[in-house]
Write a protein that binds this DNA or RNA. Structure first.
Lengths: 352, 352
DNA sequence: CTGAAAGCGCTAACAG
DNA sequence: CTGTTAGCGCTTTCAG
């Protein structure tokens, strides 16, 4: 260890480099920013000096001076009531995808978690200048707060479903199509009594439910409200609720022969609950999930699900936000989804 | 929409509030920072004005002036060669855990992905003043680069295994114990030919392997190097490699009766590969994983694994970093791990 | 209790 | 090509 401790070592700044190089600060600034106004040789020399001293331009000062900033806030809401965090792998992979997209485009990513019940507090990230734009993962039940945010001119893009009277820009999978594909598939497999599990208060789930109804209508199968059940988002609650519902349905002489779950996590919990009650998947009950998280392919049995284009999603969210920040109004973007058929929904084997 | 577009609306600043309140900027600054030097009534008035206008102090300016900053960088290395990103859910849940710990303590979290082969580039996050400290998830094969970083005085804490000659602070699970627990468990279940799968070049894995050897020695079972196999970290490569190894071992008249995998992801891939070759888990081959990711409990069969204390890990990493930044040298922290026994390793059922 | 003024580290006119 | 100078938005002496 050197004699100067890390705590009292003053950070290097441009003036130091300038002094050492025998030039003015402006020259250093220009050199380090690759300006053509400075002699190539000088540029070279300054560059090497800076590198050898591990000097890097202070971003805060630069940003302050330039009145710009390259930080995008990515906000993952959490449920403060249960003090539970979102454990759904789908959200986490979304974070990864956004990290990639932002890094590729040279933005810094500020990750924050905020109380899902106080979504409008995210605006302070913008108001305080810490971020020049915001990506929100999931719109939850706070359509109005998001509208207010957008109306105030906060550049925000939301992963979620398109809603009427929407002032903010959403990017999302085609939930209506996803719901239709999943349901049509189950119908085609000969299932008629399909349970829909999910919280239809969430816009995305509501759209998937609409797709479900549409597919039923197309097939001339009557819609039965009793077959639509809300499931809590949090894992442990969900587990209990699912067990209860499977049990009650089962006791009523198994009044369903398929389940369409609004997330893979729910679907996997369902399969487990079914198995514990001695019901076979897919023979007795076919199951389809949503998201196509990594887990789905390795579930028992491998889970049929609706694939959401996660890595493309990160790119689209960032792209929409960049346009928005540039002042170009953005219409919601709906991305294609695909049904991935695995063993949980078909009795005759397919290539898993 | 109001007539002024979001693009040309100048951001509110302290001077605006001051003008509107009929006081000086200094007073606004003091009021907003809760200084006791300012009249309570004035403070109140300014506070309300700011709130009603959604004004928030500009953090960059404040930080520049105060010469401090509340941003911690969390770095997730990725493999640039394959341009593949870390898909292991363990890393992602770590990110979540860190987000919580940092948020709780009032820090901003800057998430970056960097090339795993250029780990020392993370120092620019510090040198440029964008972050006052760095948390690195995984030490990979770059012990030396990390030592250099620490020697330069960059406040960095690494999730990983403790190594000799280590200048930087690590926080990690007790990998040696984990390896011992897993192996001892398999031995106790009567297994003697235990395959170890993982890349022992990674310090954490090396420690788990050491635990494996120790457990074998304790039980008087000879160590056979041929039973230690490297597995690529990336999912698809891993899948192929595992299939190959299972196949070759199988053809050699199944010269193993158990597998200890260095991650749950590998373990789950192994179980699939085994099943495809007609081997039953756990009857023919018992399998134990590592990490206890969410997926493990829902695998088929539910996976016995070594639980890593992820949420506590976030807290410990942040805590160590804070002390380090305060100038207090930190010794590596080793956190307890636990064996979670599920069906993949025991023939007689337990409560899953 | 409040205001005026200096300056955090940097960039960009404007003059050489 | 290079240096001088004036701020970016904020906090904090130092004077009232």
């Amino acid at each position: 260890m050197s004699s100067e401790s890390q705590a009292d070592r003053r950070r290097l700044q441009m003036a130091d480099i300038a002094r050492l190089a025998g030039v003015s600060v402006s020259t250093v600034s220009r050199a380090l920013n690759g300006s053509s106004l400075v002699n190539d040789e000088t540029k070279q020399r300054i560059g090497e000096l800076a590198r050898s001293l591990n000097y890097t331009i202070n971003q805060s000062a630069k940003n302050l001076r330039l009145q710009r900033n390259q930080t995008i806030a990515v906000v993952v809401p959490y449920d403060a009531q249960s003090r539970q965090h979102i454990s759904d792998p789908f959200f986490l992979s979304m974070v990864g995808s956004l990290a990639d997209a932002l890094t590729d485009r040279g933005y810094d990513m500020l990750l924050s978690r905020v109380d899902a019940e106080a979504l409008d507090s995210v605006s302070s990230l913008y108001d305080s200048g810490r971020a020049i734009g915001i990506v929100l993962i999931g719109q939850w039940r706070h359509h109005d707060q998001l509208n207010a945010l957008a109306a105030r001119g906060v550049p925000v893009v939301v992963w979620g479903g398109q809603l009427p009277q929407q002032l903010y820009c959403t990017v999302g999978g085609d939930n209506l199509l996803g719901g239709r594909l999943a349901t049509a598939h189950l119908l085609q497999e000969g299932r008629r009594r399909i349970l829909f599990l999910g919280d239809a208060q969430l816009p995305e789930v509501a759209l998937r439910l609409a797709g479900y109804r549409q597919a039923l209508a197309d097939a001339g199968v009557p819609y039965d409200e009793a077959r639509v059940r809300k499931v809590p988002f949090e894992e442990h609650d969900a587990e209990l609720a699912i067990a209860r519902q499977v049990a009650s349905a089962h006791e009523g002489r198994a009044d369903f022969d398929a389940v369409f779950a609004s997330s893979d996590l729910i679907a996997i919990l369902v399969m487990r609950a079914l198995r514990r009650r001695g019901l076979r998947v897919p023979e007795d009950v076919a199951v389809v999930g949503y998201d196509n998280v990594a887990l789905a392919a390795y579930a028992d049995p491998p889970l049929t699900t609706v694939h959401q284009p996660v890595s493309q999603a990160g790119v689209e969210l960032v792209d929409a936000l960049i346009h928005l920040m540039a002042g170009t109004p953005q219409v919601p973007r709906v991305m294609p989804v695909e049904l991935v058929v695995r063993l949980s929904s078909v009795v005759a084997p397919v290539n898993a």
